[in-house]
Design a protein around this nucleic acid. Sequence first.
DNA 1: AACATGATTATGTATGCACATATTACCTTG
DNA 2: CAAGGTAATATGTGCATACATAATCATGTT
Lengths: 234, 234
Amino acid sequence: MNVATQATTHHGIREAIRARIVAGEWELGELIPGEADFAAQYACARTTVNRALQALAREGIVERKRKGGTRVRPLPLPQALLRIPIIRAEVEAMGQTYDHRIMRRERSIAPGEVAKRMQLAQNHELIHLETLHLADGHPFAFERRWVNPATVPEFEGADLTAISANEWLIRTVPFSRGEASLSAVSADADLARALEVAQGAALFTLERATWFDAQSVTFTRLHYHQGYRLNFEL
Amino acid sequence: MNVATQATTHHGIREAIRARIVAGEWELGELIPGEADFAAQYACARTTVNRALQALAREGIVERKRKGGTRVRPLPLPQALLRIPIIRAEVEAMGQTYDHRIMRRERSIAPGEVAKRMQLAQNHELIHLETLHLADGHPFAFERRWVNPATVPEFEGADLTAISANEWLIRTVPFSRGEASLSAVSADADLARALEVAQGAALFTLERATWFDAQSVTFTRLHYHQGYRLNFEL
DNA sequence: AACATGATTATGTATGCACATATTACCTTG
DNA sequence: CAAGGTAATATGTGCATACATAATCATGTT
């Protein structure tokens, strides 16, 4: 066999080795040949094998340690690249018209839970925003957001009719890091009214807290309309 | 400033460039210096800069094109590495005792929706399995699974008391690829009884279909107990 | 037997070079 | 002026080499 997928490109070799692993040439947890061996087998430089094996390690297919070589992961770790959708793009990808409506916008004291998620002191004043995202005029998602004016003072006067708060913040504080969580939430009376679903409906929910440097930027809770699914590949 | 994070390692340079991007040295969408320029600035080889910039491209910080150079992503793409938890490990990580109980195990015709998700012909016979996962004896998640005996004939006689069906399949068909989706589902009568929650409770749900080569292996629908959250970092 | 020590080894990484490839920019030609 | 071809250019990639680093293994000493 041993049909080279490509010539001797690093990702040709990556696929060749992947195929051999998938075919079960080595047991789970077993040591596979060293870089030098593969280099000889495929008649290429060790550098090239190194790139291939590092890629497989990133994917969770193999485990590598300095001395002790490379081994097939005992249990391949189930990980996937999750692309968090931008609502506008998501709606437009379905061929529908995106729009959003700001339901509420005010300064208020951060609720205890929100302050905790943003790692702020109690009684911190935040800008609270409630937005309804629409697809072809129908409710698509409901967003509750708290923005820290200490970090983004310009937000107070921002015009959010053309672009959403999300896009405004991304443009203003582009490279903030964050934590997110996914969950299922029952629609309370407010949510049910806003999203036009029955009270108690199960809503897919995405929460996100973001920081720039050590400064809290924003915390969002996004409730999608009933029946929403977030798809991805493993 | 220009304080080198590390000597001239590719990931030292990666962080140095990332810092400059985050600090706003270049506009969103703006062209940043070429590999050769950076190599001169940091007194290292172009190869090293190449690795650094490729890593930033993988992260979604920059965009690169063959001629036309490297530019800061207009909108940094919100992506995250999602590690899909293995239930046993998840429960044990909370310091609780994991256990599972098989509620049902039978051969049956695949329901239409399941057959579709597994890309099988109608009236295909599958092994249907219902498992309740327990944490310290309390319901943690309820799993409905269909396994294709054409792909994994040994599954029929597998002993699923020691290890769960999930782990059995991972060990037997380790490197299968798949599609997954996350959603929120209302507990029906069966689910409510099994998970000991009120009927209509919002349940976080993970569906997964996996294939080995072109052969369908299994389709699972996993409903977590009320209040479950899946956390990850951005 | 326990422990410190150094040799060995596999991966990690930097470098200089050459060539491949995609895409833009420009210039020629009808 | 438009169409088309060609040169210039930035990234992509392979290779040979050298050295760095971490972990293991064997060795020898107390």
